[in-house]
């Protein structure tokens, strides 16, 4: 499968790094694995880092929107970092920027999340 997911924790924030291709075929596994991590104790916020994501389509938008709803229900915040131009266009077109902040890199996203707490 042409998608790799790596997770890390920084205090109450779950960091998910995606590389490869996020489409309908790979979306199910990403969704399942992310929900498992989000369900863990002490996880409040989600930082989705997309630096090495080479391809994404509307199935990926569905995954992002679904996780946003989940985190919001938990009273947390979801942000995205390291977005490349094609993914940026999709996020913009779907109006996701209106509900989610975007940061240049992981460290600026993390410091912003901590201020917000």
């Amino acid at each position: 499968m042409n998608l790799h997911m790596e997770t890390a924790r920084h205090r109450e924030t779950l960091i998910v790094r995606l590389s490869g291709e996020l489409d309908h075929h790979t979306a199910d596994l990403v969704r399942m694995r992310m929900d498992e991590e989000i369900g863990r104790e002490g996880c409040r916020n989600l930082l989705l880092s997309l630096k090495s994501l080479q391809f994404m389509d509307s199935s990926g938008l569905g995954v992002i929107l679904g996780r946003y709803k989940l985190i919001k229900q938990k009273g947390g915040k979801m942000v995205v970092s390291d977005v490349n131009p094609p993914v940026f266009r999709l996020l913009e077109m779907s109006g996701l920027f209106k509900i989610m902040s975007i940061y240049e890199n992981e460290s600026s996203a993390l410091s912003e999340l901590e201020v917000a707490l």
Partner: peptide
């Protein structure tokens, strides 16, 4: 219609046709 999906239970974004048009 943007954001419309007949399968919301599958977490579809409803953006497919909008993306193709754009």
């Amino acid at each position: 219609q943007p954001l419309y999906t007949s399968k919301p239970e599958l977490e579809r974004s409803g953006m497919g046709f909008t993306i193709m048009e754009n």
